[in-house]
Design a protein around this nucleic acid. Structure first.
Length: 588
RNA sequence: GCGGCCGUCGUCUAGCCUGGACUAGGACGCCGGCCUUCCAAGCCGGCGAUCCCGGGUUCAAAUCCCGGCGGCCGCACCA
C-alpha cells in the first residue's frame, strides 16, 4: 500500500468511526482545528495517561504535574520573549503576493542590520533603496508585523492585554517558586503539564500535523547546572541503551541518522547533557510503546538558526508517517537559565534555588565602609545623600578612594580620608544561590494520537483491524451473545457486561447482525478482546475470549474474565495463557 | 498568501468536459424485520445529499463564469 493510500484509508476510518475530523464542518471548516470524537477522545486520554506514567509517575520523587491558565497577561510573554521573537516583520509583494521576512530581505540585499527596527523604518529603507520583490521584481508593500500569538483582552479594559499561551512552559516557570517550595526546595525538580496551546499559524496544513490549537504534554526539568551527575540520578539505567541520532553536522553533510549508545553520544558531546539524553530515551520508549518501531524513529538536532530563541540545543524526535514522511512528534530543548532569568528581571522576584554546601565554608571578606559618624558630623544634612550615592558605587571604586588611588569625591563632596574604614571579617557561607537550568521534553499530543492510529491500521482478509497497543485501546472489551435471537444467551451476556463494567472496564455490548459482523465491527475500532456467550456457557458457565489480532479463542470461566482481561491488557499476556484454546480458531 | 489539482448521502464514489428526462444513481455502513450455534452470508423494508458557501449567465445550473471558505501538493512561513 502506498503512503497516499494508507493516509486516505486511515482518515476515512477516523471520520467514519468517530475518532477525529476537521472542526466546524457545518460552517465549511476552519483550517488548523480538529475535533476528537467519542473514540478519539478516549484514545487521546489513554495516550495522555500513558505519558503521565512514563514521565511523571515513574519519577514521582522528582517530577510533579501542575495545571496553569491558558490565558496569560502580556507581561509574561514579554518576559518569555514571545512578544518580541514570535513576531515577524513581513512584507508582501504587491504583484505576485509572495511574503518575505522584511528584516532578512534588507539584510540580505543591502547588508543593513535591520533587527529591532520598527516596521515604519523598514518600509522607509525599502522605499529609499528601491528594494523590489526578489522573485518577480514587483513592488513591495508596507512592512507589517505578524505575531503567531493569539491576542486577547483580560477583562473590560482595552489596555489589559493578554495572550493565549503558545507553549506550556511559562506556566511552569511563573509557578516555579511555589512548586519548589512545596517540593521542599530540592533539585532536580520536574514540573509537568498537559494542556492546550494556541499558535496563529499563517497557513496550517497536513491535517492534524499542524494545528492552530493543540494539546502539549511537556515537562520543565530544573537542574543545578554545576551538578550534572546529581541532576540525573536515573542516567545509569539508560546509558547502554541506543538512540538513533542525526547531529546537525551530519544533517549539513547530508548524512543519515546513526545509532549511538547514550553513553557514546554524551561523552562525544553530541548530546550536551545527560538529562537531555535520559529524557530522549524515555521519549523513545514512550513512542515505541504506542506502536512505532525503532527503525521508524530518530532524533534530529536543530541548527543554530532553526532553534527557538531560548534554546542552546534542541533535538526533534522524528517519526515516519505514510503521507508526509518524517514528522516531529516531540522536542527536547536545553533552555538553560534563559526563562527563569528573564522572569527574575521582569518580575523583580528572586527565583533562585539555595543549594547548601555539605560543610559551611568560612571566608574572609574585606570590605570598605564609610564611617557614618564621621560623615554625619562633617556633612550634616548632606550626609544622607552621600551615603546613598556611596552605596551605589562598586566595591573597587571605594577601595581605590580609600587607598588614595582615586579622588574621594562622592555626590560632589570631598570625603575626608578618616571616613573610609576597611573592615575584615569572617563570613560563614552555608551554600550558594543558583539559577537552575532547564531541560525540556515537549510532546505534541495530537500528532502522537495520529501516529498511534496510523501505525495500528491493518488489513487482513479484506477487513480492517485497528491493532492499537492493548493498553491504549479506547474500548477495552466487547461482549456478544452468539446469536441475537436467544433470550437466554442475551441475558447471560448482559450479566457479563455488568460484571466487566463493575470491574472498571470500558465495554461495549453488541447483539446486532451476525457474529462475524460483530467481530469485524469491534476489530475495526480496536477492541482487544471480545467475550462470547454461547450454548456451552449455559451448561458449564464458561465463555470464549477472542484476541483481536490473532482471532484465536480460549475458553474460561465467566467469573475469571475481569482478571484475565487485566492480564491481557496490561501484562501483555498471550491469549493462550488465559484459558483453554478453542479448536479451529485463529488466523486463516 | 501565490500557483496547481480538488470539494456530490455517515463513508467511498457515478454524473460535470458536451446545461434539460437528476425526483442526483450505486456500493459499503447504519436502523427495523426475517434468518443465523463463531468470523463483514442471504432476503425484505427504512433512514440518509440545502451537489462546500455566495453571486452571475441562462427559459433551465451538481454541470458554465466570478468571488469566498475548506482540503491536498509546490513556493513562502512553521518561535
Amino acid at each position: 500500500m502506498s503512503g497516499e493510500d494508507l493516509y486516505a484509508k486511515v482518515m476515512e476510518l477516523a471520520k467514519r468511526r468517530g475518532f477525529f475530523w476537521p472542526s466546524y464542518e457545518i460552517y465549511g471548516g476552519v483550517a488548523g482545528f480538529y475535533d476528537f470524537g467519542p473514540l478519539g477522545s478516549l484514545l487521546k486520554q489513554k495516550i495522555i495517561n500513558k505519558w503521565r506514567r512514563f514521565i511523571v509517575r515513574n519519577h514521582s520523587n522528582y517530577v510533579v504535574e501542575i495545571e496553569t491558565p491558558i490565558i496569560g497577561p502580556s507581561k509574561v510573554y514579554e518576559a518569555s520573549g514571545h512578544v518580541e521573537n514570535f513576531t515577524d516583520p513581513i512584507v508582501t509583494c504587491l504583484k505576485c503576493g509572495r511574503k518575505f521576512r522584511a528584516d532578512h530581505l534588507i539584510e540580505e540585499k543591502l547588508g543593513i542590520d535591520a533587527e529591532g527596527l520598527s516596521p515604519e523604518e523598514m518600509t522607509r529603507i525599502i522605499r529609499e533603496h528601491g528594494l523590489r520583490c526578489p522573485v518577480c521584481g514587483g513592488e513591495l508593500g508596507e512592512v507589517k508585523l505578524f505575531n503567531l500569538l493569539f491576542p486577547t483582552q483580560i477583562g473590560p479594559y482595552e489596555g489589559n492585554k493578554g495572550y493565549i499561551r503558545p507553549e506550556l512552559a511559562q506556566g511552569m516557570f511563573v509557578a516555579f517558586k511555589r512548586v519548589l517550595e512545596t517540593m521542599r526546595g530540592r533539585l532536580p525538580l520536574g514540573i509537568a503539564q498537559i494542556g492546550r496551546v494556541g499558535r496563529n499559524e499563517i497557513s496550517p496544513r497536513q491535517a492534524m500535523m499542524r494545528l492552530r490549537e493543540f494539546t502539549i504534554m511537556e515537562m520543565e526539568y530544573f537542574i543545578d547546572p554545576e551538578d550534572e551527575e546529581g541532576s540525573c540520578p536515573f542516567y545509569g539505567r539508560v546509558k547502554k541503551e541506543t538512540l538513533r541520532v542525526r547531529p546537525y553536522k551530519a544533517k549539513e553533510a547530508g548524512e543519515p541518522p546513526r545509532e549511538y549508545t547514550v553513553e557514546e553520544a554524551v561523552d562525544a558531546g553530541i548530546i550536551i547533557h545527560k538529562c537531555m539524553a535520559y529524557w530522549m530515551v524515555i521519549g523513545k520508549r514512550f513512542l515505541e510503546s504506542l506502536g512505532v518501531p525503532p527503525e521508524n524513529m530518530y532524533f534530529e538536532e536543530k541548527g543554530p538558526h532553526e532553534r527557538a530563541h531560548y534554546s542552546s540545543q534542541t533535538f526533534d524526535q522524528m517519526v515516519k508517517v505514510a503521507r508526509w514522511g518524517w514528522v516531529e512528534v516531540a522536542g527536547y530543548s536545553y533552555r538553560g537559565d534563559y526563562d527563569l532569568s528573564r522572569h527574575m528581571k521582569y518580575s523583580g522576584q528572586d527565583l533562585t534555588v539555595f543549594k547548601p554546601y555539605e560543610k559551611p565554608r568560612t571566608v574572609k571578606v574585606r570590605k570598605v565602609i564609610l564611617d557614618r559618624a564621621v560623615i554625619g558630623r562633617t556633612f550634616k544634612s548632606e550626609a544622607k545623600k552621600i551615603l546613598e550615592e556611596a552605596s551605589k558605587l562598586p566595591e573597587e571604586k571605594l577601595e581605590a578612594m580609600a587607598s588614595g588611588k582615586e579622588e574621594p569625591i562622592i555626590a560632589g563632596k570631598r570625603i575626608p580620608r578618616e571616613a573610609f574604614r576597611i573592615v575584615e571579617k569572617e563570613v560563614k557561607i552555608t551554600g550558594r544561590k543558583i539559577v537552575p537550568h532547564v531541560v525540556e521534553p515537549s510532546f505534541g499530543t495530537d500528532r502522537i494520537v495520529y501516529v498511534a492510529f496510523e501505525y495500528a491500521y491493518r488489513e487482513k482478509a479484506g477487513r480492517t483491524i485497528l491493532s492499537l497497543p492493548r493498553d491504549i485501546a479506547p474500548i477495552e472489551a466487547g461482549v456478544v451473545p452468539l446469536v441475537e435471537k436467544d433470550e437466554k444467551l442475551r441475558e447471560k451476556a448482559r450479566q457479563l457486561y455488568e460484571i466487566l463494567v463493575e470491574a472498571g472496564y470500558h465495554v461495549v455490548y453488541d447483539e446486532s447482525g451476525s457474529i462475524g459482523r460483530r467481530y469485524a465491527r469491534l476489530d475495526e475500532i480496536g477492541v482487544p478482546a471480545v467475550f462470547t456467550i454461547d450454548y456451552q456457557t449455559l451448561e458449564d458457565g464458561t465463555v470464549t475470549m477472542r484476541d483481536r489480532d490473532t482471532w484465536r479463542q480460549v475458553r474460561l470461566p465467566l467469573e475469571e474474565t475481569p482478571a484475565a482481561l487485566r492480564r491481557f491488557l496490561y501484562e501483555a499476556a498471550d491469549i493462550t495463557e488465559l484459558g483453554i484454546p478453542v479448536e479451529g480458531t485463529g488466523e486463516e
